[in-house]
Design a protein around this nucleic acid. Structure first.
Lengths: 170, 170
DNA sequence: ACCGTCATGTAATCGGTTACATGATTCT
DNA sequence: AGAATCATGTAACCGATTACATGACGGT
């Protein structure tokens, strides 16, 4: 049993398994897209390697399905739940970075007009998608995902205002 | 002369050298902090390895200072300027992700109260810092950095509203 | 002369991404 | 039955981070 550094990806995996119960990597993949994947994405291959890492370190157990494809099924251990709890209950003051590719271009002198229009279109689409998603899950989802989705919605609205203003000035 | 994939870090380096002229890694480091580093950060060691990569691929030239520490000084080549231009003038529809550690915790069930208060404090500090910075450079800085800074300010304001609301509900 | 801090850099490690590959399933 | 798409996974590579290390310089 090795010792590893828990990354954000680790917590996403632990959190997903807590939410959904014992999961295969593919279960996780489906759990990620259209939820947490909207604002914290990574390639699906991470969902094969990361649970393995976590299992080696004792945060998950790894079993094989009986019959069929005999896929790997991961479950939370006590140690895993503890790690998740410790992380979750530490009220971090760490801040998100903008890390917006379009703002990066802007910083280095990109033309506002075309960039603004492209961004506006994309952000409007994303906002619509979020609002639809919220309406679809509002009555059934746990509060965490819902409230996070609200943040995503505010984020999109802010950026739509921002790029609108820029595109208008240009 | 090798072929490399240009990452965001590459464009940051190319952009910095364009803005500031021939630079040593340490010049770049100073250029990064308090400007682009606020919303697209990375460890300073990247500023030693990345220019080297870029020089090998022909986007920068590498010279040695005469005397003193004989530090490496990097300058843009035509090829580097072209790559920067091509990137900058492509109006990307690629979207920023939230990728906010605090929202991640929220998603997986963190308590709103303590987390909200910690985030509020941190975001208020950051906002004040941005506003001060803006006032300090408003008259001298090129438009790109200023307009990007405006985005950072709006971002902070949005998150202050968001966490205020959450902390109040909790 | 010493100490602390800033300046400057090297090297190793590793998480994350990219590329690829093969079974299942569904559709026509 | 063939094609297309979804499901499931492996392996290699590499950019990014972490750890460490030494030189310069200002203050006491």
């Amino acid at each position: 049993m090795s010792t590893i550094r828990l990354t954000y990806t680790s917590y996403v995996v632990l959190g997903l398994v807590e939410l959904a119960g014992p999961s295969t990597p593919y279960d996780m993949k489906r759990g990620v897209e259209a939820s947490i994947g909207n604002f914290w994405s990574f390639p699906h291959t991470q969902l094969y390697t990361e649970p393995e890492r976590l299992a080696e370190a004792g945060y998950l157990t790894e079993e094989r399905e009986e019959g069929g494809r005999r896929r790997k099924v991961y479950s939370l251990t006590d140690s895993g739940r503890q790690a998740l709890d410790a992380w979750r209950s530490d009220p971090t003051g760490e801040l998100a970075e903008l890390r917006d590719p379009a703002v990066l271009k802007l910083f280095f002198g990109a033309e506002r007009g075309p960039l603004g229009r492209a961004q506006l279109a994309a952000h409007r689409r994303k906002l619509a998608e979020y609002e639809e998603l919220r309406d679809a899950i509002a009555s059934t989802a746990p509060p965490g995902p819902l409230i996070a989705l609200e943040c995503g919605i505010e984020h999109e609205r802010m950026l739509i205002r921002y790029w609108s203003r820029l595109a208008a000035e240009a």
